[in-house]
Computed example of a mutant assay.
Amino acid sequence: MILARGMIDGITAALGANGLILRGGFVFPDNEGSPHGPSGAPARSLLLVGHAGAAPWPHFLGWGEQQPQAIANPLDTWSREIIGAIAEKFGARAVSPSDKPYLPFQQWAMRAEGLKPSPLGILMHPQYGLWHAYRGALLFEDEIALPEQAAAIHLCDTCIEKPCLKSCPVDAYSREGFAYQACLAHVRGGNGEPCRSGGCLDRNACPYGTAYRYPPEVQAFHMASFARARS
């Protein structure tokens, strides 16, 4: 069975009420293994859920104010709650990037939207730049009729200066990869206040998608989460 367009519209509206958006999707080929759907049978189709800019932030804050106690991973919990309820309503199985064993969300995103990684590892979007994220996916056991995805322009290919590799005081990002321990030590240290309060300097140096740049308080929230990570 092919999912009706009206169902996709309904999912889009339900996500939009929480600042979330559909980020593309695809049908798994017959010869490809796929995660299981809501009944336990192999999923046939996938819809990615995410956001552009900080659109979910007011909804997330409002939800947090109603929680009776502090939650260890509040944004992940909120995302699971919202996407899970939508999955239940529309007959899908909801999965999250933090599910273990980990699911290939980055590969799914590149496949669904035709994106490529930036030098920072974040997928570069032709409109949103580096200011977007994926919060989950909906797995269906039916086929979804989706328009063919056009190849996205990869802005990093035309960026000569690469300011995203020149702004970090400890050179955490390079063509060799991400120096995780150096970044973490700097963010936690005495000289890391600009990063803690305003976000990653390399990410903020990117000239693309600036209209979607997360406000400082949102960047500080994510950086605080990073700083709490285990070494």
Rank of each mutant, 00 (worst) to 15 (best):
Ala179Arg: 11
Ala145Gln: 13
Gly10Ile: 03
Ala54Arg: 08
Pro74Ala: 05
Gly16Ser: 14
Pro56Asp: 13
Asp202Ile: 02
Ala150Trp: 03
Glu141Cys: 09
Phe26Val: 07
Gly114Asp: 14
Asn31Pro: 05
Tyr180Met: 07
Leu146Ser: 10
Ser167Ala: 15
Arg80Asp: 15
His222Lys: 01
Ile153Thr: 12
Ser225Phe: 03
Arg188Phe: 07
Ala55Gly: 04
Gly50Leu: 03
Cys164Gly: 11
Ser79Trp: 05
Ile21Trp: 01
Ala182Arg: 14
Arg135Val: 01
Trp131Gln: 09
Ala92Trp: 12
Tyr180Ala: 09
Ala109Ile: 00
Ala17Gln: 13
Gln106Glu: 13
Ala152Tyr: 01
Ala227Thr: 11
Gly199Asn: 03
Leu103Thr: 10
Pro207Cys: 03
Ala205Leu: 04
Gly177Gln: 03
Phe28Tyr: 12
Arg213Pro: 10
Ser231Ala: 13
Leu120Pro: 14
Trp78Thr: 12
Ala145Leu: 06
Met223Cys: 06
Gly6Glu: 15
His125Trp: 08
Lys166Arg: 13
Leu103Glu: 15
Gly84His: 08
Arg203Gly: 13
Leu20Gln: 04
Ser34Arg: 05
His186Pro: 06
Ala94Glu: 13
Pro147Thr: 07
Arg175Tyr: 04
Ser79Asn: 15
Asn191Tyr: 00
Arg5Met: 00
Phe140Ala: 09
Ala109Gly: 12
Arg196Lys: 03
Glu217Asn: 15
Gln67Asp: 07
Pro29Trp: 00
Glu143Asp: 15
Arg213Asn: 04
Asn31Met: 03
Met223His: 10
Leu165Ile: 02
Arg44Phe: 04
Ile144Trp: 06
Gly6Asn: 11
Tyr212Glu: 15
Gly25Ala: 06
Ala227Asp: 14
Lys89His: 11
Pro104Asp: 08
Gly114Lys: 02
Lys166Leu: 11
Glu88Lys: 10
Tyr128Ala: 11
Pro42Arg: 01
Gly121Ser: 08
Pro74Phe: 01
Thr12Tyr: 03
Val170Thr: 09
Glu193Phe: 00
Pro147Trp: 07
Tyr208Lys: 01
Leu155Arg: 07
Pro104Asn: 06
Arg111Trp: 12
Val95Met: 00
Phe140Val: 08
Glu143Gly: 14
Trp57Asn: 06
Asp157Val: 06
Ala92Pro: 13
Tyr180Lys: 11
Pro104Trp: 06
Asp157Gly: 11
Arg203Ser: 11
Ala137Phe: 07
Ala220Cys: 07
Leu120Cys: 11
Gly189Phe: 00
Gln106Asp: 08
Asp157Phe: 07
Pro104Ala: 03
Asp30Leu: 06
